[in-house]
Amino acid sequence: MLRVHIWSDFVCPWCYLGKRRWEKALAGFAHARDVEVAWRAFELRKDQPSVPGRRLADLMITNYGMQPAEIDEVFDRIRGLGAQEGITLHPEQVRPVNSFDAHRLSRLAADAGAGEPVMDALFRAYHAELRNIADHGVLRDLAAEAGLPDGEVAAMLRGDRYAETVRAQEAAARTAGVTSVPSFVIDGQQARHGAVEADDLLTMLNEEWEKNSRTGSDRPA
């Protein structure tokens, strides 16, 4: 059994790409049934408000000193990579928001057996549909589309359920040395960070499987 932890944030276009590439890698792995995957929360902008404000491009100019031409080049690349993976990305239009409650919803969905469809819905809503995934109404709509009971979702969003779970996963990221997303850690050993190609992820899976086969180990992640 291989245990994989993947840290990710819904407002990160590279994480959306990373999820698609991970799925492609896993589909090509001969022992996919023996892979246990745990998606983990990571907030890129913890202080971001829940109401959309400035565009991502504006934040990149202010926070990182990037020039408009540089940003256009990055955004063109992101859109092109998204098209290759069959997903729509609108980095030039997104307005970053806080993702904490989206991560809480993702934890609720995972416990209810609907983790994958809700994750996909959150990524699509933010990057393709330009919806505010910090808005509780939007989160409830996305959850309902995945078949989650609205009353349970609404109660979770009103309270602090899964808040400690999200914080614990973020703390675990620091312990694991994860400082950027997406980050893929297999069996607590090999790690890949950032815009990793599906072939590289598949190689990592095969390497760890072979290593475990030789040692007969079943290390915890």
Rank of each mutant, 00 (worst) to 15 (best):
R107W: 08
G82S: 10
E207T: 14
N63C: 15
Q169H: 08
H136I: 07
A38Y: 15
R104F: 06
R192Y: 09
A57K: 06
V181H: 00
Y64R: 09
F42G: 08
M119C: 04
L17N: 04
R45G: 14
V51L: 02
R54T: 05
A154R: 02
R124E: 11
F42M: 12
L201Q: 01
A146P: 13
L44K: 04
E70I: 14
L26F: 12
R131Y: 02
P52Q: 05
E197T: 08
N206C: 00
E73R: 10
A69M: 15
M1G: 15
L105V: 00
F184L: 13
A155I: 05
P220I: 14
E36S: 04
R33M: 10
G159C: 05
E85A: 08
F100W: 00
Q190W: 08
M1W: 14
A125Y: 00
E70K: 15
G113A: 08
P149S: 07
Q190E: 06
G137E: 10
G113Q: 09
V97M: 13
A114H: 04
D76K: 12
A154V: 05
V166M: 13
G28Q: 07
D58T: 11
A195C: 05
A114N: 09
N63A: 12
Y126V: 14
A32C: 05
D76E: 15
L139N: 01
G137W: 01
R192T: 12
R158I: 02
L44M: 07
M156G: 11
T215R: 15
F10P: 02
L81Q: 05
Q93V: 10
L201E: 01
G188R: 12
G137T: 13
A114P: 05
Q169F: 03
R20T: 08
Q67Y: 04
L202C: 03
W14L: 02
H193M: 08
A109N: 10
A195P: 15
V118P: 07
D218P: 14
V181Y: 02
G65D: 12
D150C: 01
D141Q: 12
T179M: 13
D58Y: 13
G147L: 02
D135H: 00
L26K: 13
I133E: 05
A173Y: 04
Y64S: 00
W14D: 03
S217E: 15
F75W: 01
F10Q: 06
T62D: 15
K24Q: 14
A57H: 03
L130R: 01
R124Q: 07
P91C: 10
D58E: 15
D199S: 12
G53C: 03
A27Q: 09
V51H: 01
A172C: 13
L59Q: 04
A38K: 10
I186Y: 10
P91D: 04
I87Q: 01
P91K: 08
V181E: 01
K211L: 11
Q67S: 02
L139H: 05
R33K: 10
T179R: 11
E43W: 09
M119N: 13
W14K: 01
G137F: 06
A30G: 08
R214C: 15
R214H: 14
E170T: 04
A110Q: 05
R158S: 03
G18P: 06
A114C: 11
E208R: 07
